[in-house]
């Protein structure tokens, strides 16, 4: 169900890289019934032991404010930044896509990969693995085109995002 004033927000969360921190964030979303469209996490500063979580969520403005306030309330959370409202930002996602085909379909998959600037990172006589980066929409489009050409497996990272310009989170 999508409410009329629901919006999609990409939120970056800087957290201590400690056991359980991801469970705290995910538990907050599931426990309070918030949506998670995409979630990525990795350490970004080994010296200060910081990880960055990028979460894409949907909600009314009141819910989005709640999500941010609840995230800020978690003890190991350093910063919460709503990239969607805090100015222009860049979003990227990476996917690995396996296509098993022969003959014309195999050739066609390579041709489309070229258009999408996807790279072949594994090849056998009967399959390719493509690496493709871009917005989630671009990845979706690529996957849809590969479907009739022998798509057998998809692995996506989820969205990572960063603000444009010189300022850090």
């Amino acid at each position: 169900m999508t409410l009329a004033n629901e919006g999609r927000h990409t939120i970056a969360v800087l957290v201590d890289n400690e056991p359980g921190v991801l469970a705290r964030v995910i538990g907050l979303f599931s426990g309070r019934g918030y949506n998670i469209d995409s979630l990525t996490v990795a350490e970004v500063d080994a010296e200060r032991m910081l990880s960055r979580i990028t979460v894409v969520t949907r909600g009314t403005p009141m819910i989005i404010e709640q999500i941010k306030a609840q995230l800020r309330r978690l003890v190991p959370v350093h910063r919460v930044s709503d990239l969607t409202v805090e100015g222009p930002h860049v979003e990227r996602e990476l996917a690995l896509i396996k296509v098993a085909a022969s003959g014309d379909k195999r050739v066609e998959s390579l041709r489309i990969a070229d258009i999408f600037r996807a790279r072949v990172v594994d090849s056998t006589t009967s399959s390719f693995v493509f690496e493709v980066t871009g917005t989630s929409e671009k990845l979706g489009a690529f996957i849809n085109l590969m479907r009739p050409l022998g798509l057998v497996d998809v692995s996506r990272t989820g969205v990572v995002a960063i603000s444009r310009g010189p300022k850090a989170i």
Partner: peptide, 14 residues
């Protein structure tokens, strides 16, 4: 215990 009490506490530690 930390898993069970995570949503039941302000914070918890192992």
């Amino acid at each position: 215990t930390v898993g069970i009490t995570r949503p039941c506490t302000k914070h918890n530690y192992l």
